[in-house]
């Protein structure tokens, strides 16, 4: 990325890519969810509720984990500091609220996941671009000719790999977004591709969390995701629809 452009999108402005991806992803998801029996309005509400819960939950979890600091400065709860955020707490709260919302509105879970697939595919590109702009998720040292100078060393352009992989997955699934088949298969195939590519590309990352043996935690998590999604594909594909029941019960 040229230096001027990189300065323009320097942190915290790199998050603009994530916000843009959330917006574009939602538009794309709205276009195909109707065919799956999920009203666009309900999908929008679900995403908004989950995002809000994720943001609030992330902040509250951080506060609970650092209770003493927030008792000394209660106004810190409404501070604009993005660092006061627990990603795992945010994810857990977002999932929980999304699950409660879809259960209360009787939205079919597999169709919801299929409808959210375009959203997730665009979001993955946004996250890759934000890493590219901020220099986060940097690569391992390399002597390959396409290496980039970062943090004092020539490194794999791992953020570019990540963005290209996400764009390739979006291109691969583009035609399938509008197609309806057994509910859940679209999402599970997308998850399998994403986990498989993450497993491969994590090997070129320079900031991986390592186990004592040198194994990368991200790769292990991606492999577990791959196992689960492949198992899911197998089970969903083998599950024949029952005569006389709606497709959502299949």
């Amino acid at each position: 990325m040229p230096a001027d452009l990189q300065n323009f999108f320097a942190p915290p402005r790199h998050l603009v890519f994530v916000i843009l991806a959330l917006w574009l992803g939602q538009i794309l998801a709205n276009r195909s969810c109707g065919k799956r029996g999920v009203p666009a309005g309900q999908l929008e509400n679900l995403v908004m509720a989950s995002l809000l819960a994720g943001i609030l939950g992330g902040r509250l979890t951080y506060a609970l984990l650092h209770l003493e600091a927030f008792l000394a400065d209660p106004l810190g709860l409404v501070s604009l500091n993005l660092e006061l955020f627990s990603p795992w707490g945010g994810l857990a709260c977002g999932f929980l609220v999304g699950w409660i919302f879809s259960s209360r509105k009787s939205l079919p879970p597999w169709d919801i996941l299929d409808s959210l697939t375009p959203f997730l595919a665009v979001l993955a590109i946004g996250v890759g671009l934000s890493h590219l702009a901020s220099g986060l998720a940097f690569g391992a040292p390399t002597s390959l000719p396409w290496g980039i100078e970062q943090w004092g060393t020539i490194r794999h352009p791992s953020q570019a790999y990540e963005t290209l992989a996400a764009a390739s997955v979006l291109a691969l699934f583009w035609r399938q977004f509008a197609r309806t088949e057994r509910p859940g298969l679209l999402f599970l195939r997308f998850a399998a591709w994403t986990c498989g590519l993450s497993l491969f590309l994590a090997a070129f990352r320079g900031d991986s969390a390592l186990l004592q043996s040198g194994l990368r935690l991200e790769q292990i998590a991606a492999w577990a995701g791959l196992v689960l999604s492949m198992l899911g594909i197998h089970l969903r594909a083998a599950n024949k629809p029952v005569e006389g029941r709606g497709r959502h019960d299949a």
Binding site: A140, P141, G196, L199, F200, A202, A203, G206, D207, S208, L210, S213, G214, L215, R216, Q219, I220, A222, W223, L226, V227, M230, H234
Partner: peptide, 23 residues
């Protein structure tokens, strides 16, 4: 799928950072 998962496992072990260059 079994071949893919086995290849994934092999890749995890092949690409492990045993020399400690990352840390």
């Amino acid at each position: 799928p079994i071949v893919l998962l086995a290849a994934g496992l092999a890749w995890i072990f092949l690409s492990a950072d045993r020399s400690g260059t990352l840390a």
